[in-house]
Simulated assay, not measured.
Amino acid sequence: MKKILTASALALLIAGCAAAPTIDSVSAAAPLTLSVDGQSVLPKLHPFHSEELLYVPARALLEYYPGELKWDNAHKKLIFTTNSSRTVLSPGSSAIQVQYTQTDGAYEDKLEGPVLLKEGHVYVSSGAVDLLTGAVAKLAASGGTVNITSGDVSTSVRVPKEPLAIAAGSSGKVKLYAARKEGSTYKGFILEVNGGKHSFNWKSPRLVSYPPELHYADVDEDGKPEAIVILSLGTGTGISQEEVHVVKPEVWKEIAVPAAEKAASAAVSSQISLDSGDVVVRLELAGSTPSKVALRLPGRAGDGGLDYFGKQAGIGAVTYYKVANGKLKAETSLSVGMLESMGRLMLDYKRGGTGLILDSIKFEPHDTTEQYVEKE
Protein backbone atom coordinates (compact mmCIF):
# COMPACT_ATOMS: atom_id res chain seq x y z
CA MET A 1 0.00 0.00 0.00
CA LYS A 2 1.21 3.50 -0.71
CA LYS A 3 1.36 6.16 1.97
CA ILE A 4 -1.26 8.88 1.70
CA LEU A 5 0.12 12.19 2.85
CA THR A 6 -2.62 14.65 1.91
CA ALA A 7 -4.38 16.63 4.60
CA SER A 8 -7.70 15.26 3.43
CA ALA A 9 -6.64 11.68 3.91
CA LEU A 10 -5.45 12.58 7.37
CA ALA A 11 -8.51 14.41 8.55
CA LEU A 12 -11.13 11.91 7.43
CA LEU A 13 -10.35 9.96 10.58
CA ILE A 14 -11.13 12.56 13.13
CA ALA A 15 -14.85 12.77 13.83
CA GLY A 16 -17.27 10.72 15.88
CA CYS A 17 -20.27 9.47 13.89
CA ALA A 18 -22.89 8.46 16.42
CA ALA A 19 -25.53 7.94 13.74
CA ALA A 20 -23.62 5.07 12.13
CA PRO A 21 -24.12 1.46 13.25
CA THR A 22 -21.79 0.22 15.96
CA ILE A 23 -19.33 -2.56 15.19
CA ASP A 24 -19.48 -5.24 17.86
CA SER A 25 -16.15 -6.99 17.30
CA VAL A 26 -14.28 -4.90 19.84
CA SER A 27 -12.82 -6.95 22.66
CA ALA A 28 -12.67 -5.80 26.25
CA ALA A 29 -9.28 -4.58 27.41
CA ALA A 30 -7.74 -2.82 30.38
CA PRO A 31 -8.14 0.96 30.01
CA LEU A 32 -5.26 2.61 28.18
CA THR A 33 -4.41 6.31 28.10
CA LEU A 34 -3.52 8.34 25.04
CA SER A 35 -0.72 10.82 24.46
CA VAL A 36 -0.28 13.02 21.37
CA ASP A 37 3.13 14.64 20.86
CA GLY A 38 3.89 14.07 24.54
CA GLN A 39 0.66 15.56 25.86
CA SER A 40 -2.19 13.61 27.44
CA VAL A 41 -5.46 13.90 25.51
CA LEU A 42 -9.02 12.60 25.62
CA PRO A 43 -8.99 11.09 29.12
CA LYS A 44 -12.50 9.61 28.65
CA LEU A 45 -11.69 7.82 25.37
CA HIS A 46 -9.39 4.83 25.79
CA PRO A 47 -7.38 2.96 23.15
CA PHE A 48 -8.05 -0.78 22.95
CA HIS A 49 -7.15 -3.96 21.06
CA SER A 50 -9.43 -5.62 18.52
CA GLU A 51 -8.54 -8.63 16.34
CA GLU A 52 -4.90 -8.20 17.43
CA LEU A 53 -4.88 -4.62 16.19
CA LEU A 54 -4.33 -1.66 18.49
CA TYR A 55 -7.05 0.98 18.03
CA VAL A 56 -6.95 4.62 19.12
CA PRO A 57 -9.74 7.22 19.22
CA ALA A 58 -9.74 9.14 15.96
CA ARG A 59 -10.79 12.31 17.78
CA ALA A 60 -7.22 12.61 19.05
CA LEU A 61 -6.26 13.75 15.57
CA LEU A 62 -8.47 16.82 15.86
CA GLU A 63 -5.57 18.47 17.66
CA TYR A 64 -3.03 16.93 15.31
CA TYR A 65 -4.30 17.32 11.75
CA PRO A 66 -6.20 20.07 9.94
CA GLY A 67 -9.52 19.55 8.26
CA GLU A 68 -13.24 20.21 8.18
CA LEU A 69 -15.56 17.26 8.24
CA LYS A 70 -19.21 16.72 7.26
CA TRP A 71 -21.21 13.63 8.15
CA ASP A 72 -23.51 12.46 5.35
CA ASN A 73 -26.20 10.83 7.48
CA ALA A 74 -28.24 9.69 4.47
CA HIS A 75 -25.35 7.60 3.07
CA LYS A 76 -23.55 7.00 6.39
CA LYS A 77 -20.32 8.46 5.05
CA LEU A 78 -17.80 10.91 6.46
CA ILE A 79 -16.73 13.57 3.94
CA PHE A 80 -13.71 15.82 4.29
CA THR A 81 -13.24 18.69 1.84
CA THR A 82 -10.25 21.00 1.38
CA ASN A 83 -9.39 23.46 -1.37
CA SER A 84 -7.70 20.63 -3.24
CA SER A 85 -9.43 17.34 -2.41
CA ARG A 86 -12.52 15.53 -1.18
CA THR A 87 -12.12 12.34 0.85
CA VAL A 88 -14.82 9.84 1.80
CA LEU A 89 -14.70 7.22 4.55
CA SER A 90 -17.43 4.63 5.01
CA PRO A 91 -17.68 3.46 8.65
CA GLY A 92 -17.19 -0.27 8.99
CA SER A 93 -15.04 -0.37 5.84
CA SER A 94 -11.29 -0.17 5.37
CA ALA A 95 -11.66 1.38 1.91
CA ILE A 96 -11.24 5.11 1.36
CA GLN A 97 -11.94 7.23 -1.72
CA VAL A 98 -10.02 10.41 -2.53
CA GLN A 99 -10.98 12.87 -5.26
CA TYR A 100 -8.98 15.98 -6.16
CA THR A 101 -11.30 18.97 -6.45
CA GLN A 102 -9.09 20.94 -8.81
CA THR A 103 -8.61 18.05 -11.26
CA ASP A 104 -10.46 14.91 -12.29
CA GLY A 105 -8.00 12.67 -10.43
CA ALA A 106 -9.33 10.12 -7.98
CA TYR A 107 -8.20 6.87 -6.40
CA GLU A 108 -9.07 4.29 -3.76
CA ASP A 109 -6.91 2.66 -1.14
CA LYS A 110 -7.38 0.19 1.68
CA LEU A 111 -6.43 0.60 5.31
CA GLU A 112 -4.91 -2.05 7.57
CA GLY A 113 -8.22 -2.54 9.32
CA PRO A 114 -11.69 -1.01 9.25
CA VAL A 115 -12.60 2.10 11.15
CA LEU A 116 -14.57 1.04 14.24
CA LEU A 117 -17.38 2.72 16.12
CA LYS A 118 -17.47 2.10 19.86
CA GLU A 119 -20.03 3.81 22.06
CA GLY A 120 -20.59 6.47 19.43
CA HIS A 121 -16.93 7.29 18.85
CA VAL A 122 -14.67 6.55 15.89
CA TYR A 123 -11.48 4.54 16.36
CA VAL A 124 -8.74 3.71 13.89
CA SER A 125 -5.96 1.15 14.07
CA SER A 126 -2.46 2.26 14.95
CA GLY A 127 -1.18 0.80 11.69
CA ALA A 128 -3.71 2.88 9.75
CA VAL A 129 -2.47 6.02 11.49
CA ASP A 130 1.05 5.28 10.28
CA LEU A 131 -0.11 4.35 6.77
CA LEU A 132 -2.29 7.39 6.27
CA THR A 133 -0.35 10.11 8.04
CA GLY A 134 3.25 9.14 8.61
CA ALA A 135 2.69 9.62 12.35
CA VAL A 136 3.49 6.68 14.61
CA ALA A 137 0.97 5.32 17.12
CA LYS A 138 2.31 2.61 19.40
CA LEU A 139 2.02 1.23 22.89
CA ALA A 140 4.60 2.58 25.31
CA ALA A 141 7.01 0.21 27.02
CA SER A 142 5.05 0.65 30.24
CA GLY A 143 2.04 -0.89 28.51
CA GLY A 144 -0.37 1.71 29.87
CA THR A 145 -0.15 4.51 27.30
CA VAL A 146 -0.44 4.74 23.53
CA ASN A 147 1.83 7.43 22.15
CA ILE A 148 1.18 9.18 18.84
CA THR A 149 4.26 11.03 17.64
CA SER A 150 4.96 13.03 14.53
CA GLY A 151 6.82 11.35 11.71
CA ASP A 152 9.02 12.99 9.07
CA VAL A 153 6.06 13.30 6.70
CA SER A 154 3.34 14.16 9.20
CA THR A 155 1.23 17.25 8.78
CA SER A 156 0.76 18.73 12.23
CA VAL A 157 -1.33 21.65 13.47
CA ARG A 158 -0.81 20.82 17.11
CA VAL A 159 1.31 23.34 19.01
CA PRO A 160 4.28 21.36 20.31
CA LYS A 161 4.99 21.36 24.00
CA GLU A 162 8.52 22.61 23.36
CA PRO A 163 9.11 25.80 21.32
CA LEU A 164 11.48 25.92 18.36
CA ALA A 165 13.14 29.02 19.79
CA ILE A 166 13.10 31.28 22.86
CA ALA A 167 14.29 34.87 22.62
CA ALA A 168 17.34 35.60 24.73
CA GLY A 169 16.74 38.18 27.43
CA SER A 170 12.96 37.75 27.36
CA SER A 171 12.80 35.70 30.57
CA GLY A 172 11.23 32.90 28.54
CA LYS A 173 8.21 35.04 27.61
CA VAL A 174 8.92 35.25 23.85
CA LYS A 175 8.69 31.90 22.07
CA LEU A 176 8.28 30.51 18.56
CA TYR A 177 6.38 27.30 17.79
CA ALA A 178 5.74 25.33 14.63
CA ALA A 179 2.04 25.73 13.86
CA ARG A 180 2.10 23.14 11.11
CA LYS A 181 4.71 20.89 9.55
CA GLU A 182 4.37 18.92 6.36
CA GLY A 183 7.16 16.64 5.26
CA SER A 184 10.42 18.60 5.33
CA THR A 185 8.66 21.98 5.52
CA TYR A 186 7.31 24.21 8.28
CA LYS A 187 4.02 25.60 6.96
CA GLY A 188 3.13 28.14 9.58
CA PHE A 189 4.41 29.35 12.94
CA ILE A 190 2.93 30.52 16.22
CA LEU A 191 4.55 33.44 18.01
CA GLU A 192 4.05 33.83 21.74
CA VAL A 193 4.83 37.11 23.50
CA ASN A 194 4.04 37.67 27.17
CA GLY A 195 1.36 34.97 27.16
CA GLY A 196 -0.41 36.09 23.99
CA LYS A 197 -0.22 33.97 20.84
CA HIS A 198 -0.70 34.65 17.14
CA SER A 199 -0.20 32.49 14.05
CA PHE A 200 1.67 33.47 10.88
CA ASN A 201 1.77 31.59 7.58
CA TRP A 202 5.54 31.84 7.06
CA LYS A 203 7.17 28.82 5.42
CA SER A 204 10.66 27.42 5.75
CA PRO A 205 12.48 24.08 5.49
CA ARG A 206 12.70 21.89 8.60
CA LEU A 207 16.50 22.04 8.91
CA VAL A 208 17.82 20.47 12.11
CA SER A 209 21.21 22.15 11.73
CA TYR A 210 19.69 25.58 11.04
CA PRO A 211 16.79 26.12 13.46
CA PRO A 212 14.82 29.39 13.51
CA GLU A 213 16.26 32.27 15.52
CA LEU A 214 14.15 34.53 17.74
CA HIS A 215 15.06 37.95 19.13
CA TYR A 216 13.23 40.58 21.18
CA ALA A 217 14.46 44.14 20.73
CA ASP A 218 13.25 47.63 19.83
CA VAL A 219 14.74 47.63 16.35
CA ASP A 220 12.46 50.43 15.06
CA GLU A 221 13.22 52.65 18.07
CA ASP A 222 9.60 53.43 18.93
CA GLY A 223 10.04 52.55 22.60
CA LYS A 224 8.42 49.12 22.28
CA PRO A 225 10.34 45.89 21.56
CA GLU A 226 9.56 43.82 18.47
CA ALA A 227 9.80 40.07 17.96
CA ILE A 228 12.34 39.30 15.23
CA VAL A 229 12.16 35.87 13.59
CA ILE A 230 15.01 34.69 11.34
CA LEU A 231 14.31 31.63 9.20
CA SER A 232 16.81 29.63 7.18
CA LEU A 233 15.61 29.02 3.62
CA GLY A 234 18.36 26.55 2.74
CA THR A 235 22.04 26.09 2.10
CA GLY A 236 24.15 24.64 -0.67
CA THR A 237 27.50 25.02 -2.41
CA GLY A 238 28.18 28.75 -2.41
CA ILE A 239 24.59 29.53 -1.45
CA SER A 240 22.90 30.19 1.89
CA GLN A 241 19.69 32.15 2.36
CA GLU A 242 17.74 33.52 5.32
CA GLU A 243 14.64 35.67 5.64
CA VAL A 244 13.57 37.93 8.46
CA HIS A 245 10.17 38.82 9.94
CA VAL A 246 9.70 41.71 12.39
CA VAL A 247 6.44 41.69 14.36
CA LYS A 248 4.94 44.33 16.64
CA PRO A 249 3.32 42.03 19.24
CA GLU A 250 1.01 44.63 20.76
CA VAL A 251 -1.00 44.58 17.49
CA TRP A 252 0.38 41.33 15.99
CA LYS A 253 1.38 43.26 12.87
CA GLU A 254 4.40 42.38 10.73
CA ILE A 255 6.23 45.50 9.60
CA ALA A 256 7.93 45.89 6.23
CA VAL A 257 11.62 45.02 6.02
CA PRO A 258 13.36 45.06 2.62
CA ALA A 259 15.29 41.83 2.01
CA ALA A 260 19.02 42.36 2.39
CA GLU A 261 19.85 41.40 -1.19
CA LYS A 262 17.20 43.78 -2.58
CA ALA A 263 18.22 46.65 -0.31
CA ALA A 264 21.86 46.11 -1.22
CA SER A 265 21.15 45.90 -4.94
CA ALA A 266 19.30 49.22 -4.76
CA ALA A 267 22.11 50.90 -2.82
CA VAL A 268 25.15 49.51 -4.67
CA SER A 269 26.17 50.18 -8.25
CA SER A 270 29.05 48.20 -9.72
CA GLN A 271 31.15 48.05 -12.85
CA ILE A 272 33.61 45.38 -13.96
CA SER A 273 36.25 46.24 -16.54
CA LEU A 274 39.57 44.97 -17.91
CA ASP A 275 42.81 46.94 -17.49
CA SER A 276 46.13 45.66 -18.87
CA GLY A 277 45.44 42.05 -18.07
CA ASP A 278 43.80 42.84 -14.73
CA VAL A 279 40.14 42.72 -13.77
CA VAL A 280 38.90 45.83 -11.94
CA VAL A 281 35.71 45.82 -9.87
CA ARG A 282 34.41 49.26 -8.92
CA LEU A 283 31.67 49.77 -6.34
CA GLU A 284 29.68 52.84 -5.34
CA LEU A 285 27.70 52.46 -2.12
CA ALA A 286 24.88 54.80 -1.11
CA GLY A 287 23.21 54.95 2.29
CA SER A 288 23.85 57.25 5.23
CA THR A 289 27.64 56.93 4.74
CA PRO A 290 28.33 56.75 0.97
CA SER A 291 31.61 55.22 -0.11
CA LYS A 292 33.54 53.98 -3.13
CA VAL A 293 35.62 50.81 -3.35
CA ALA A 294 37.76 49.31 -6.12
CA LEU A 295 39.27 45.83 -6.28
CA ARG A 296 41.98 44.95 -8.79
CA LEU A 297 42.42 41.25 -9.59
CA PRO A 298 45.90 41.03 -11.12
CA GLY A 299 46.34 38.87 -14.22
CA ARG A 300 42.76 37.64 -14.17
CA ALA A 301 41.67 39.09 -17.51
CA GLY A 302 42.78 35.89 -19.18
CA ASP A 303 40.33 33.85 -17.11
CA GLY A 304 37.57 34.34 -19.61
CA GLY A 305 37.44 38.13 -19.59
CA LEU A 306 34.07 39.79 -19.23
CA ASP A 307 32.39 36.66 -20.61
CA TYR A 308 33.27 35.03 -17.30
CA PHE A 309 33.32 37.96 -14.87
CA GLY A 310 30.33 39.81 -16.32
CA LYS A 311 29.93 43.58 -16.38
CA GLN A 312 28.46 43.94 -12.89
CA ALA A 313 28.99 42.23 -9.54
CA GLY A 314 26.42 39.77 -8.23
CA ILE A 315 24.68 40.36 -4.90
CA GLY A 316 22.90 37.99 -2.56
CA ALA A 317 24.11 34.40 -2.98
CA VAL A 318 24.75 34.22 0.79
CA THR A 319 22.55 36.24 3.15
CA TYR A 320 22.38 36.29 6.95
CA TYR A 321 20.54 38.43 9.50
CA LYS A 322 21.23 39.20 13.15
CA VAL A 323 20.20 41.55 15.94
CA ALA A 324 23.04 43.35 17.71
CA ASN A 325 23.01 46.37 20.03
CA GLY A 326 19.30 46.78 19.49
CA LYS A 327 19.62 47.03 15.69
CA LEU A 328 18.67 44.70 12.87
CA LYS A 329 21.71 43.96 10.75
CA ALA A 330 22.37 41.83 7.70
CA GLU A 331 25.17 40.70 5.49
CA THR A 332 24.94 39.57 1.91
CA SER A 333 27.67 38.42 -0.43
CA LEU A 334 29.15 40.28 -3.37
CA SER A 335 30.57 38.06 -6.10
CA VAL A 336 31.92 38.04 -9.64
CA GLY A 337 31.93 35.34 -12.28
CA MET A 338 30.50 32.00 -11.17
CA LEU A 339 29.73 33.03 -7.59
CA GLU A 340 33.36 33.92 -6.87
CA SER A 341 32.89 35.85 -3.65
CA MET A 342 34.83 39.09 -3.20
CA GLY A 343 33.46 39.94 0.23
CA ARG A 344 30.36 40.96 2.14
CA LEU A 345 28.01 43.91 2.10
CA MET A 346 27.19 44.83 5.69
CA LEU A 347 23.79 46.45 6.22
CA ASP A 348 22.24 48.31 9.14
CA TYR A 349 18.48 48.96 9.22
CA LYS A 350 16.63 51.91 10.76
CA ARG A 351 13.07 53.08 11.23
CA GLY A 352 11.41 54.57 8.17
CA GLY A 353 7.86 54.90 6.88
CA THR A 354 5.75 51.94 8.02
CA GLY A 355 8.67 49.65 8.76
CA LEU A 356 12.43 49.44 8.50
CA ILE A 357 14.64 50.82 5.73
CA LEU A 358 18.32 50.66 4.91
CA ASP A 359 20.45 52.94 7.05
CA SER A 360 24.08 52.28 6.15
CA ILE A 361 25.90 49.81 3.96
CA LYS A 362 29.60 49.08 3.63
CA PHE A 363 31.80 46.56 1.86
CA GLU A 364 34.07 44.19 3.78
CA PRO A 365 36.51 42.08 1.75
CA HIS A 366 37.41 38.55 2.77
CA ASP A 367 40.85 37.90 4.25
CA THR A 368 41.76 36.33 0.91
CA THR A 369 40.57 39.32 -1.17
CA GLU A 370 41.63 42.20 1.08
CA GLN A 371 44.92 42.43 -0.83
CA TYR A 372 43.01 43.35 -3.99
CA VAL A 373 41.37 46.48 -2.53
CA GLU A 374 42.95 49.58 -4.08
CA LYS A 375 43.89 52.36 -1.71
CA GLU A 376 42.28 55.73 -2.40
Rank of each mutant, 00 (worst) to 15 (best):
T185M: 14
K375E: 15
D152Q: 11
H46D: 03
F363D: 00
L164V: 09
A313H: 10
G353K: 13
L69V: 15
A140E: 09
V244R: 02
A259Q: 12
G92H: 04
D307T: 06
S270T: 14
A259M: 09
K138E: 12
A260P: 09
Y216W: 15
Y186I: 14
Y216A: 04
G234A: 11
I79V: 15
A74G: 02
A266D: 14
H46M: 03
K311G: 11
K175S: 03
L111R: 02
L231C: 04
A267D: 10
H245L: 07
A286I: 03
T155N: 08
A330M: 08
G134H: 00
V323D: 01
K375C: 03
T185Q: 14
V56S: 00
F309K: 05
T185K: 10
G234P: 13
P114E: 12
W71E: 11
L10D: 09
K311I: 05
R180M: 13
L358M: 09
K173Y: 00
E112Q: 13
D307I: 00
R158A: 10
G316Y: 06
M338Y: 10
L339V: 10
S273G: 05
S50K: 13
H245W: 07
A58M: 06
V136W: 01
G287R: 10
V219H: 04
E340P: 00
